[in-house]
Design a protein around this nucleic acid. Structure first.
Length: 580
RNA sequence: GCCCCGGUAGCUCAGGGGAUAGAGCGUUCGCCUCCUAAGCGGAAGGUCACAGGUUCAAAUCCUGUCCGGGGCGCCA
């Protein structure tokens, strides 16, 4: 059986053709949740215009042309021409029962499976990860999880910055320090210092800068000794990345790393292909592609510089090579770039060139999944009090510490071991929910007190709702009550009805997040679900239900809600502890 | 100068053609002998930056203005 909202939409579509002819078969019935009923359809007003009839008349004709009897026990026309539907309780019960029996909780399979290549996280080698990486990592991972769950093939690409001119100075500095044989830079705190020192030396010492430039040439030429030192830097950095990923609970693995260096061998042929296609030409000694529509300050055509005057390749070349690789070799059908909004123009140009080159053509699409900055309370880019960029480790550690402190405050005599297990789940979950629940395109204000607050629209609130359900299950088990019996779900109380209705929206919420690439929609849905559950929890005793069938039905509703919350949180990369 | 993204309640944010604009925090009034009160129920609080336009219908679409952030040829 179809989930009621889709069933209503389908019914309305046939009703429209029946009433007004096949030429209107394509109209969107505009079915949505309603405050005045269970669902409402807003199609009559639009149709009225083309049909030159009054909206209420149109609505009446549509309603008359279909039999809503099996789904609804009330269909009313209201206001200018809204059609309000109140579901039959049996339809609601069947819908929820179908959901309970469905592994996928009502998430439909995609009409066509995409091969999604998703580029996210992408930290830089020899630099410590900082706040600037938190959004791409969290948002990218959530999208990867959602798309994968829906049934798309997801290829993660961690486009780490492991190549380019800075490595000349880094390697040269490493040699100055003793050829890299020094006690391994095990902590990346040191390597961060290392980068800074190299930078300072590069800017201050022309002789060093010169050596650094020569070292870049050696690196790009594949000099053995140089590569060895380079690999050392990369290896140490990767250790750091994965320690962060582990703390964060991110699905990226070493196999997903495809850094800038891996395109090194493709840069020349990419440039050659662009030349061959007549797209790239030499301008001021640099090989440039001028995509139509892009201009600089002076209103002159703005180039994408494929090869610099000095013969080197910049990041535009790498991104073009990566685009070519992702389309021509990986055969991705949907390419996602989870990169900050400031790079919008860069990606617009890269995609434009990709289209000109014929690498990117429909139905294959590339999308810049842009996001805004993380701001402090002062509405400026988040910095430490000293004005430094915030290290990601400290951010995550502080989240865990704060979560643990909250646990102590709440339950001073609680088991410390339990707290230690719980704190990361709550702290990291709080950071993730705070980030994901904001529309990604906007900047968002990072506020510890708000995200970890005891109350409100937060990660902990969702986890708490889930934990309360499991608390019921534990109590049930203690009382020898077997869950998952044959008893049907019976919807009687308003709170049960509201919860059931909310549960039916799970599939739509997940699909919506995937199509729009906006995880905050799923966040909003899960919050609404948790609210509906909390209201149900207050109003409808489960284990103390008036009779056994009611108790079992409520247990089943609880089970379904717990699954939906846990799954939804999982799709966001947030853990759902069973007790808090 | 040109381009992109924002401007919605005191604060943080949803809503992005459809009914009286929603939520959380904060303020305020209630609710724990009862499955976790990190909870639930109620109240107050808004010329949706501004001005035009399109439409039966605009917070939502278009144009312009103002404010804030960002980008604009060899860094990534």
């Amino acid at each position: 059986m179809k989930e009621p909202q889709s069933a209503l939409a389908a019914l309305l579509r046939t009703a429209v053709t029946a009433a007004f002819g096949a030429e209107h078969a394509g109209v969107d019935p505009m079915v949505r949740r309603s405050e005045r009923a269970d669902y409402q359809a807003d199609l009559a007003m639009g149709l009225a215009k083309t049909l030159r009839q009054s909206p209420r008349q149109v609505a009446a004709a549509v309603v008359a042309a279909a039999d809503f009897g099996s789904l609804c026990d009330r269909v009313e026309i209201a206001g200018p021409g809204f059609i309000n539907f109140t579901l039959k309780t049996s339809a609601l019960e069947q819908g929820v029962a179908a959901l309970a029996a469905d592994e996928r909780l009502g998430v439909p399979r995609p009409a066509s499976v995409d091969r999604v290549v998703i580029d996210y996280s992408s930290p830089n080698v020899a630099k410590e990860m900082h706040v600037g990486h938190v959004r791409t990592t969290i948002i990218g991972d959530a999208l990867a999880r959602v798309l994968e769950f829906i049934g798309h093939e997801v290829i993660r690409q961690n486009h780490i910055g492991d190549w380019g001119t800075p490595f000349g100075m880094l390697i040269e500095h490493l040699l100055d320090l003793g050829g890299g044989e020094t006690r391994g830079h095990s902590s990346l705190g040191e390597l961060n210092e290392f980068y800074r020192a190299a930078r300072v030396k590069f800017d201050a010492d022309p002789e060093f800068a010169d050596r650094a430039r020569q070292r870049v040439v050696l690196l790009q030429a594949g000099d053995t000794r140089t590569l060895e030192l380079w690999r050392k830097l990369v290896a140490i950095s990767e250790l750091h990345f994965f320690s962060i990923y582990e703390k964060l609970g991110v699905t990226l693995s070493p196999a997903d790393i495809r850094g800038e260096s891996s395109y090194n061998s493709m840069l020349a042929e990419t440039a050659a292909e662009l030349e061959r296609l007549g797209l790239a030409k030499i301008n001021d000694g640099a090989l440039c592609v001028f995509a139509p529509g892009f201009v600089n300050r002076e209103g002159e055509p703005l180039p994408l510089i494929v090869r610099k005057q000095d013969g080197g390749f910049g990041y535009a070349a790498t991104d073009l090579a990566a685009l070519r690789y992702r389309t021509q070799t990986l055969h991705g059908t949907r390419l996602l770039y989870v990169v900050g909004a400031p790079q919008a123009q860069h990606f617009a140009m890269v995609f434009a060139v990709g289209e000109l080159a014929g690498w990117l053509k429909p139905p294959v699409r590339a999308e810049h999944v842009a996001f805004g900055a993380v701001l402090g309370a002062d509405k400026k880019m988040l910095k430490t009090r000293a004005g430094d960029t915030v290290r990601l480790v400290s951010l995550l550690d502080e989240a865990v510490e704060r979560a643990e402190a909250e646990l102590v405050r709440r339950e001073p005599n609680g088991d410390p071991a339990v707290r230690r297990a719980l704190a990361p789940q709550i702290g990291i979950g709080a950071i993730k929910y705070a980030d994901l629940s904001n529309d990604r395109i906007k900047d968002y204000v990072f506020d510890w007190d708000r995200m970890l607050a005891a109350e409100g629209r937060t990660g902990p609130y969702l986890q708490y709702a889930h934990a309360r359900i499991h608390s019921i299950f534990r109590k049930a088990a203690e009382g020898g009550i077997v869950r998952g019996g044959a008893g049907a779900i019976v919807v009687v109380e308003p709170a049960e009805r509201a919860l059931a209705l909310e549960l039916l929206g799970f599939g739509r919420a997940v699909t919506d997040a995937a199509e729009t690439l906006h995880p905050h929609r799923l966040c909003g849905y899960l919050y609404d679900l948790a609210v509906a559950f909390s209201a149900f929890f207050e109003a409808c005793p489960v284990l103390r239900a008036p009779d056994e069938p009611t108790r079992d039905s409520r247990l089943a509703l609880c089970g379904l809600t717990a699954r939906a919350l846990a799954r939804g949180l999982d799709l966001l990369g947030i853990q759902a502890p069973e007790r808090m």
